[in-house]
């Protein structure tokens, strides 16, 4: 049996189901990260012993650039499919994956430096929120990488049989990926600069 509204838009919503699904998921993600941002603000306002150690701003700036670049390559991958250019899609999604790898490696170096300075989640309120928020964000990057790798590799077979459905899959993966970028855009000043 064919699953309806994978490609064609539902008359009542005006959307294919996957798109509405990803936006509802992203709404729940806003609440997840929103809860953590709220806790961070509350702790920062209420903790009389608030202490923020020096973090590596250059590394975090580099990571911001890397993640922004990966957002562009992701949206270019989707645009390539809409232009029926599968080769370019593979090129751009491979670039997205590699940039995501670079983000995780840089983050790993950062964590390593922090551990070497004896900064752990148990050190103070700031480090606890820092590791929770960047750790959760990192898990989201990792999740996105799995999906991007799948769509680049085995999942891309769908392009031959159902190209529109495959293009939609890349679009909603992109929406998730841009959200991950969006969260970092707020995490960066909140944790590193203020």
């Amino acid at each position: 049996m064919e699953i309806p509204y994978n490609v064609e838009e539902r008359p009542d919503t005006g959307l294919y189901n996957g798109k509405l699904g990803i936006w509802l998921f992203l709404a729940s993600e806003v609440m997840l990260f929103g809860g953590l941002f709220s806790s961070y603000i509350l702790l920062r306002t209420g903790d009389p012993n608030w202490f923020k150690p020096e973090l590596s701003v250059p590394m975090a700036t580099l990571n911001t650039m890397v993640l922004i670049s990966s957002s562009v390559t992701m949206v270019m991958a989707w645009a390539s499919l809409r232009l029926q250019d599968f080769k370019k899609f593979r090129l751009f999604s491979a670039a997205t994956f590699l940039l995501a790898c670079a983000f995780m490696v840089i983050k790993g170096f950062e964590y390593n430096t922090e551990f070497s300075h004896h900064l752990y989640p148990s050190s103070n309120n700031f480090m606890a929120t820092y590791f929770t928020m960047t750790g959760l964000h990192g898990l989201h990057v990792l999740g996105g990488m799995v999906v991007i790798a799948y769509l680049w590799g085995p999942g891309s077979r769908m392009w031959k049989t159902e190209p529109e459905r495959f293009t939609n899959r890349v679009e909603i993966t992109g929406l998730y990926w841009h959200f991950v970028d969006l969260v970092w855009i707020f995490l960066f000043p909140a944790l590193y600069l203020l």
Binding site: V75, G174, D181, L182, I185
Partner: peptide
């Protein structure tokens, strides 16, 4: 920055 990402990339 967030608005740019949401408006154009998303």
């Amino acid at each position: 920055k967030g608005s740019l990402v949401a408006a154009f990339f998303m």
